[in-house]
Design a protein around this nucleic acid. Structure first.
Length: 590
RNA sequence: GGGGACGUGGUGCAGAUGGUUAGCAUGCCGGUCUGUCACACCGGUGGCCGCGAGUUCGAGUCUCGUCGUCCCCGCCA
């Protein structure tokens, strides 16, 4: 028999009421406390920890064997559940009222001294954590995060299934599409010289499923994008992908709220208020400088152009004359923490974001004279702004002058930096829908119109007709869900009318030929009665990260990759051997 | 593609202005200890200072390059 001592209980469940029972636990040795005559060990599995003790007076042979135990050995303990003596109760432990008097011990496997200490919370280099991910995953934090992720997936499936959505899988080996992110590609051996692309999302397939009559579809789908990675971006990530037919935007928002609510409730018991608050893209960008604002931190952008309308400093007068504005935001209670050097750093930062310079005003506590970068040119204006209460005592005001949209964006980035670097992390969840995104954006690099969301997004029909010759004014029927400053979901009503789709492709400069070679199968499908449909995709990794309070989605993915897309554990990506390359007819140039 | 930070025993960190023996904590090993719970105490082990050039009598420290990691900008429909 292979497993001699098979567990009867897990390490998190025994209580006082179990006293006297003979049980077997299996698990890892979390900690050893050897007092010479009596030896305590903590045994750990994913359900918890239980204290076991070895008493030489009870069984000296067993005690001698226990002396050889080391941290992270995997063992079975057979023993009797004992109520702990009153003075030895540990009220910080779930199982702290009991302990196990060991009667038998089986060592399943030994462990070398681990590079990561499972029993301790300490900062470890990310590379080490990833190289020994299986050990990092033993730790409480990741065990909890992955459990919450599991619950989130179950809640998603339950809610959507109960609402008639069918879970359908779509291919991972698919066709490269233009627009959007760079594709990860997979060479075809049988059709050498041809490549599959891994899907950036199941977008086209789910629309085809709508054509097929699966009027409510969902999938917890892996997506792949070959771009540069960040704390909230991995080369592969998971989306809750949703699509429905015969619906309009409101229906999708409703389902989206349903999923998010179910996930919050089933994971941490938090019930978000519904309906979620909404703001338009125009409002969000003008008020927060971002289309994914975290409103918990305040610091709304204020237009202070009025104060400067009589100022004759060149750059200010110029901006106002050209229809630009001066806007900024207040950082409360930080004046005393900002030295001249720090203001200079923020000025450099603003410049790196594309600003010409940064205006700052600091109203120091108990000092009559404010500090400011524009003191010499705007003494009067500064005083008026302070007198009007726009800058409170001990607060700072950062401002920029220029074209409204441009400075909104830079102020938004500065605001995010202040939030990240200077502000204590806010509690709770800030959930909002952002609506009325522009349909198109101008791509400076390619010198053409591009789809802001994706080219299957239905424009607002009235605007589409009205602004046919000024497409940047057209808004799309699309929406984002933002939670705590993260873009959590994104979706749209899709185009089901061939005439509109054709027009949109034309506007973004796709030729008939390109359309046919890239999306031909979708266009073809839409000849056969496509229903009106709409959908969205929720970022599972980000959602779970927000719920668990993690800043990086790496903390909610079992085996994540580094910022350069590598895996220190398996050493992926790696070179292929000659034989594989030959089969694929691939020559690697250097 | 650009900017910033970092790389020193297994792990986490310290090593002003270059100076001979690279320090601390923890782990690990050994010892003492019968109620610990981050057990305690005593002793010990452990380092090509990411890698490669260069400057110098002398480099963990300075310069250049390179590799890796993290954060940010660009990018991410």
């Amino acid at each position: 028999m292979f497993l001699l001592l098979k567990r009867t209980n897990n390490c998190g469940e025994l209580r006082k009421k179990d006293a006297g029972k003979e049980i077997i636990l299996n698990g890892w040795i979390d900690r050893i406390r050897d007092l010479g005559g009596i030896k305590f060990i903590l045994l750990r599995d994913r359900y918890g920890k239980t204290q076991v003790f070895f008493d030489p007076n009870e069984n000296n042979e067993l005690y001698e064997r226990a002396v050889t135990l080391g941290i992270e050995y995997t063992v079975a303990i057979k023993g009797i559940v004992k109520e702990r003596p009153a003075e030895a109760v540990n009220s910080d432990m779930e199982t702290g009222e009991i302990e196990i008097l060991a009667k038998d011990l089986e060592i399943f496997s030994k462990s070398e001294t681990p590079p990561i200490y499972v029993n301790r919370e300490e900062d470890i280099a990310e590379t080490t954590r990833l190289k020994y991910r299986y050990l990092d995953l033993r730790k409480e934090r990741l065990q909890r995060n992955l459990f919450i992720r599991h619950k989130a997936m179950q809640a998603t499936r339950k809610y959507l299934s109960e609402n008639n959505f069918m879970e359908i899988e779509t291919p991972y080996l698919t066709k490269s599409t233009p627009e959007g992110a760079r594709d990860f590609v997979v060479p075809s051996r049988i059709k050498s010289g041809n490549f599959y692309a891994l899907p950036q999302s199941p977008q086209i397939f789910k629309q085809l499923l709508m054509v097929s009559g699966f009027d409510r579809y969902f999938q917890i789908a892996r997506c792949f994008r070959d771009e540069d990675f960040r704390a909230d971006r991995q080369p592969e990530f998971t989306q809750i992908d949703i699509e429905a037919s015969f619906v309009e935007m409101e229906d999708i928002l409703n389902f989206g709220e349903g999923v998010v609510k179910a996930v919050f409730q089933e994971t941490i018991g938090y019930i978000p208020e519904t309906p979620f608050k909404r703001m338009t893209y125009a409002y969000a960008t003008d008020t927060y400088g971002s289309d994914k604002p975290d409103t918990r931190y305040g610091m709304e952008l204020k237009d202070i152009t009025e104060y400067f309308k009589d100022n004759c400093t060149d750059f200010i007068a110029e901006v106002i004359k050209n229809g630009g504005c001066i806007k900024g935001f207040e950082v409360k209670n930080k004046a005393s923490l900002f030295s001249r050097k720090k203001f200079d750093e923020y000025t450099d930062l603003a410049k790196s974001f594309g600003a010409a310079g940064l205006m700052w005003i600091a109203k120091d506590k108990d000092k009559a004279e404010p500090r400011s970068s524009i003191k010499k040119i705007a003494q009067k204006e500064i005083n008026e702004i302070i007198n009007d209460g726009i800058i409170e005592e001990d607060s700072i005001f950062f401002a920029l002058s220029g074209e409204r949209k441009v400075i909104n964006k830079i102020l938004g980035q500065l605001r995010n930096t202040v939030i990240r670097e200077e502000t204590e992390k806010a509690k709770g969840f800030d959930i909002s829908w952002i609506t009325d995104f522009p349909m198109f954006a101008w791509d400076e690099e390619e010198n053409r119109l591009v789809a802001e969301h994706h080219p299957f997004t239905m424009p607002k029909i009235d605007e589409f007709e009205k602004y046919a010759d000024d497409p940047l004014r057209i808004n799309g029927q699309c929406y984002d869900l933002v939670i705590n400053g993260y873009e959590m979901a994104s979706g749209s009503v899709r185009i089901h009318r061939q005439d509109i789709q054709k027009k949109v492709f034309e506007m973004i400069g796709l030729s008939e030929e390109q359309i046919n070679s890239k999306f031909g199968f979708l266009i073809e499908a839409f000849k056969y009665g496509p229903p009106p449909h709409a959908g969205m995709a929720l970022g599972m990794d980000r959602l779970v990260a927000v719920i668990t309070g993690e800043d990086s989605i790496k903390e909610v993915i079992a085996f994540p990759k580094t910022a350069t897309g590598s895996d220190p554990m398996s050493d992926a990506p790696s070179v292929l051997d000659e034989k594989q390359l030959k089969e694929l007819k691939i020559d690697v140039k250097n």
